[in-house]
Nucleic acid binder design. Structure first.
Length: 435
RNA sequence: GCCGCCGUAGCUCAGUCUGGAAGAGCGCCGGACUGUGGAUCCGGAGGUCCCGGGUUCAAAUCCCGGCGGCGGUCCCA
């Protein structure tokens, strides 16, 4: 046990992990930019009043980090997601609609940590503010899908539903009491199966007739078009259901990854602020929960700005993407440093070190990440260091090189060694790096 | 939050059952080795045995409570 440890559910990220994370984040960010999204950042800390009442009872009572500032006596909270801070941001800034923004940053949730779940994690969030139309929802799904695919994860599925279908069917047509508990139960369908859902509904006190109706609804499956047809036939008379079916149909027309989409009435999602389409990305193989999710929230921003501002968005959870990719063997933690070249000093005198430093600077000027010895270590110790770090090109500098104004380049991959004039070092090193 | 397993060096763990001097491998640092060995060998550093209490002549080991990690549940990214 280390003497000083980090708080539960929080982690340090050492260089090899950070190098992988940054690579993945770069791919995601490039995809976002390609679709016209621009970055924003907001504070980690918000006033508790800002976040209050947006996520649902359970989240706010147990999951949001909140505390009283001992100096000002004010209540603060660490942000729980990036969507509510966006809504708050809009009350302080004038933007042009559609406002397409991305936000890649940390969020905090006081949950019990386990596989793929941490108390501090990063979300890669995109939103379109201002559009009520299904093509905006479809664009979010397309961007997220492409980003996930660009990372190298191919075997994902997109579960799609609409809050209006849930409300129309369960709350209005069936007029169920305590719908939240029903949502909780049907949300578990994937894990416990139809029998499990039946049992839990019975345990919760619902009549057999009601249970069979619920089962009938959530067992509608097949292609998205077929599912929507059936729902419309059964519940199209309900205004909310009709709106949702129409919206999802139009949305599907714009989705490039339609073969990955399934419309599932058992998809619920916890956050209170969703009002229309909702979706979740899941991978089958590592059992890791969802890797991305989102939906439409037409009423959230109005709370902050006073203006009705329909919006839609979603986010990718980077730690789950990484955990899944590592487990599937798509990613490897094989890069320990960005450094490409190590300049090795064979003698620990001022002249040799100045010469080594000059060569390193020549390489750096060409943008080649280069290290020199600052430990005055033996040749062996320096060589071992370079090997351990996976630096394949070593430039040897000793009294001979200094007096002859030369350098010896050693390439570990090919095992070749070459003595070159000082003026040609950069050029020759580049050849080794490319070869 | 609840249930289960676990906690000994930076990491993986042995030792715990049956109480009696704190260990191994890997990693880290250095050397053998005269200037270009992903080798081999040698040496060195590194410990609150998770924390607190109890039992005992004696606790890493037994008992109680806490904390932390992992898996499940809940929920979600």
């Amino acid at each position: 046990m280390p003497k000083y440890s980090v708080p539960k559910g929080f982690r340090d990220l050492p260089p090899d992990i950070m190098i992988l994370r940054k690579k993945i984040l770069r791919i995601i960010e490039e995809t976002f930019i390609k679709y016209g999204y621009d970055p924003i950042e907001t504070p980690a800390l918000e006033y508790w009043d800002t976040l209050k009442g947006k996520y649902g009872e359970e989240a706010e009572n147990k999951l949001v980090y909140k505390f009283k500032d001992p100096w000002s006596e004010k209540w603060y909270a660490l942000r729980y997601d990036l969507t509510v801070p966006l809504a708050r941001f809009l009350s302080n800034h004038v933007v042009q609609f559609p406002f397409r923004r991305y936000h890649i940053s940390r969020v905090w949730r006081h949950e019990n940590p386990q596989r793929g779940r941490y108390r501090e994690f990063w979300q890669c969030d995109i939103d379109i503010v201002g559009s009520p139309y299904p093509e905006a929802d479809a664009e979010i799904v397309n961007v997220l899908s492409e980003a996930i695919e660009n990372i190298g994860l191919r075997n994902f599925k997109i579960k799609l539903n609409d809050r209006r279908m849930l409300a129309g069917i369960f709350e209005e047509t069936l007029s169920l009491k305590n719908v939240i508990s029903v949502y909780r139960i049907i949300d578990k369908l994937d894990k416990i199966g139809y029998e499990g859902v039946r049992e839990e509904l019975a345990k919760a006190g619902y009549s057999n007739e009601t249970i069979e109706k619920i089962i009938e609804i959530i067992s509608i499956s097949g292609s998205p078009e077929k599912v929507l047809d059936e729902i419309e036939e059964m519940y199209g008379g309900n205004r909310k259901v009709g709106e949702a079916v129409l919206h999802l149909r139009e949305m599907l027309d714009f989705i490039k990854y339609r073969n990955k989409v399934s419309v599932e009435l058992s998809l619920v999602r916890g956050l209170d602020y969703y009002t229309g389409p909702i979706f979740e990305y899941v991978v089958e193989k590592p059992k890791i929960g969802s890797i991305a999710g989102g939906g439409r929230y037409d009423n959230l921003i109005e709370i902050y700005t006073g203006k009705h501002t329909p919006s839609t968005g979603g986010s990718i959870g980077i730690e789950r993407v990484i955990d899944a990719g590592l487990e599937l063997g798509i990613f490897r933690l094989d890069m320990k440093t960005y450094t490409k070249v190590y300049v090795l000093s064979l003698k620990h005198d001022r002249e040799t070190y100045l010469y080594a430093s000059a060569i390193a600077n020549m390489l750096r000027e060409k943008g080649i990440p280069t290290q020199v010895d600052v430990m005055r270590r033996s040749e062996q110790a320096q060589r071992r260091y370079a090997i351990k770090k996976g630096i394949n090109v070593v430039v040897y500098v000793g009294p001979k090189e200094v007096s002859e104004r030369r350098a010896t380049i050693y390439d570990r991959k090919s095992g070749t060694r070459k003595v070159v004039d000082l003026g040609r070092v950069v050029e020759e090193v580049l050849k080794f790096l490319e070869g």
